[in-house]
């Protein structure tokens, strides 16, 4: 897609979404839409490190949970408004990404992945031990009321998440097409070759960790507002770690649109499915689909489409 049409479409979605509360009455749609958009942000953030640079983060829920708890803390301590919570969550997520990356990225990618698994346990342990944030049982987060224009809390967080999703996707697309994206893809293909081409691989990986960490944490920030109750179990939820990985892999990791497709598809199906089947079967199904894609279609839906196009082209070429 060309840049101008892309930006026009992004702006249309943004404006259309912001005016949606004026036309749609039923808050359930905003409730469900919020979750779908939240996953667009998470999957997009994950893909900057995982898809472009090839460093798999299993601990997405650590970053997400950090965002949730930063927001919860700000609500409790200062009654801070949502935009402040979001910015603070972004800064904390960035620092967390840099710190984890700095400690583990100088060695092989496997260690980074393993460290991210453990990171979830550690942050959860930390929250369990902070009484101010409610410890293991969690706490109420009574946020300041939403601006009247939005017509309700749910509509307000929906619109906030829509803004975040558009910003995240625009940022991801920009990174992908800039020198940063090129360097990250070079790192994914071969780190020694990237170094030999003058790419400061460690710094670039840290940049990717920082951006990715910030975006994922930002996705968690409005949760405190949305749910008006936070606890370690839902903030560091297994589902988030799984979906963050599954959505880009199913959609396709090479381009910004892959995670968007994956998130829209998977999150919508899950939203419909939670009404009908249990959440365990939900995770089980995602797990099996994930395995199937990793084994059979490692380039995701985008890869399948490209293969199909190639086949059609060949068939067309043969008279």
């Amino acid at each position: 897609m060309r840049t101008l049409p892309f930006l026009v479409i992004a702006a249309l979605i943004l404006v259309g979404g912001l005016f949606l509360p004026q036309f749609v009455g039923n808050p359930y749609y905003f409730f469900a839409g919020y979750v779908v958009l939240q996953y667009v942000v998470i999957a997009t953030g994950w893909n900057i490190l995982g898809g472009y640079a090839g460093y798999i983060n299993f601990g997405t829920s650590a970053f997400f949970g950090a965002g949730v708890y930063v927001a919860a803390f700000l609500i409790k301590a200062f009654g801070a408004p949502l935009p402040v919570q979001i910015l603070a969550a972004g800064v904390v997520g960035m620092l967390l990404g840099v710190a984890t990356g700095y400690l583990t990225l100088r060695i092989q990618g496997v260690y980074f992945s393993i460290a991210t698994v453990a990171l979830v346990v550690v942050l959860e342990t930390l929250i369990h031990n902070i009484d101010y944030l409610g410890g293991a049982s969690g706490m109420q987060t009574i946020a300041p009321p939403a601006p009247a224009w939005f017509g309700g809390q749910t509509q307000y967080v929906f619109c906030a998440m829509l803004v975040l999703a558009v910003v995240a996707v625009v940022a991801a697309r920009f990174i992908e097409r800039s020198w940063i994206g090129r360097s990250l893809r070079a790192i994914k293909a071969s780190e020694p070759a990237a170094e030999a081409c003058g790419v400061p691989t460690l710094s670039m990986k840290l940049v990717a960790c920082a951006i990715s960490g910030a975006i994922i944490a930002i996705a968690g920030a409005p949760y405190a507002y949305y749910a008006s109750h936070v606890d370690p179990l839902s903030a560091f939820s297994l589902t988030i770690g799984l979906n963050a990985l599954a959505m880009p892999l199913i959609g396709g990791t090479r381009s910004w649109i892959g995670p968007v497709i994956g998130a829209l598809l998977l999150a919508s199906v899950q939203q419909i499915a939670t009404v009908t089947i249990s959440s365990e079967f939900n995770i089980l199904a995602v797990g099996i689909v994930l395995i199937a894609f990793v084994v059979l279609a490692p380039e995701g839906i985008l890869g399948l489409i490209a293969d199909l196009k190639e086949k059609l082209r060949r068939r067309g070429a043969r008279p």
Binding site: Y55, I283, G287, I288, I291, V294, P298
Partner: peptide, 20 residues
């Protein structure tokens, strides 16, 4: 395709399937 990251993902998926 001895890609470590893909096999990590595979094992992660397997681990979830076992748990569930």
């Amino acid at each position: 395709r001895g890609n470590t990251l893909q096999s990590l993902t595979l094992f992660f998926g397997v681990s979830l399937v076992i748990e569930i």
